[in-house]
Amino acid sequence: MKTHLRTIQTLFAAAVLAVLAAGAPAHAQDYPSRPVSLVTPFPPGGAADVVIRLMAQELGKEMDATFIVDNRAGAGGAIGTSYVARAHPDGYTCC
């Protein structure tokens, strides 16, 4: 009976430690740590380009980071859209 009680106490202690360890704060790296690419599926010089460039400028000021506008025009927006869809999902390529 004492062995059974000791096993339960050990399992309980392990569960408590696991819960406490899971609640510890994680130290994430600063985002963005490199330039962020804002892809627009429209040609440069149009209204959409002006808006995204203004947005990139304000984001850069607000987040103290570099935001690059990448125009990928053509095929009715399919080129830019497919470029973003195939990009590495790390948060540094956005449409």
Score class of each variant (00 low, 15 high):
44 P>I: 11
62 E>M: 10
72 R>H: 13
45 G>F: 00
65 A>E: 05
42 F>D: 09
6 R>T: 12
62 E>S: 13
31 Y>P: 03
24 A>L: 15
67 F>I: 07
81 T>F: 05
58 E>Q: 15
54 L>C: 13
75 A>I: 01
3 T>I: 06
24 A>G: 07
26 A>R: 14
51 V>K: 12
41 P>C: 05
77 G>N: 12
45 G>Q: 09
45 G>E: 04
11 L>G: 13
18 A>Q: 11
50 V>G: 13
53 R>D: 12
17 L>T: 10
32 P>V: 08
55 M>F: 14
88 H>Q: 11
90 D>N: 14
68 I>F: 04
31 Y>K: 01
84 V>P: 05
92 Y>T: 07
58 E>K: 15
82 S>W: 00
42 F>L: 04
27 H>S: 13
77 G>V: 09
67 F>Y: 15
35 P>R: 00
26 A>M: 13
62 E>W: 05
9 Q>Y: 10
49 D>E: 06
50 V>N: 11
6 R>N: 06
34 R>N: 00
81 T>Y: 06
2 K>W: 04
7 T>D: 08
31 Y>Q: 02
73 A>H: 10
6 R>M: 08
73 A>W: 12
76 G>T: 05
11 L>N: 12
61 K>S: 09
17 L>I: 13
27 H>P: 00
82 S>L: 10
59 L>H: 02
42 F>M: 03
53 R>Y: 04
85 A>Q: 14
70 D>Y: 08
21 A>F: 12
21 A>R: 09
68 I>Y: 02
92 Y>A: 03
64 D>Q: 14
92 Y>S: 07
94 C>P: 01
86 R>V: 04
55 M>Y: 15
91 G>R: 09
33 S>R: 05
83 Y>T: 07
76 G>I: 10
82 S>Q: 13
30 D>C: 04
82 S>V: 03
23 G>P: 04
66 T>I: 10
55 M>R: 11
31 Y>H: 01
19 V>D: 01
85 A>H: 08
3 T>P: 00
78 A>H: 03
60 G>P: 07
15 A>F: 11
79 I>W: 00
59 L>V: 06
94 C>N: 08
25 P>G: 11
46 G>H: 08
41 P>M: 06
60 G>A: 07
92 Y>E: 05
18 A>F: 14
54 L>Y: 09
92 Y>P: 06
33 S>Q: 04
11 L>Q: 10
39 V>P: 00
35 P>A: 04
37 S>V: 07
39 V>Q: 06
74 G>A: 09
14 A>I: 13
25 P>M: 08
61 K>F: 06
63 M>A: 08
38 L>R: 02
63 M>D: 05
18 A>Y: 07
80 G>F: 07
43 P>V: 02
57 Q>Y: 12
82 S>F: 01
78 A>Y: 02
61 K>Q: 14
4 H>G: 01
40 T>C: 01
8 I>G: 02
4 H>T: 11
15 A>N: 03
63 M>E: 10
31 Y>D: 02
29 Q>N: 07
8 I>H: 05
50 V>H: 13
35 P>Q: 01
36 V>A: 02
88 H>V: 12
22 A>V: 08
1 M>H: 12
17 L>H: 04
59 L>M: 15
76 G>S: 11
54 L>D: 15
42 F>H: 10
1 M>W: 01
63 M>S: 03
23 G>C: 15
38 L>S: 06
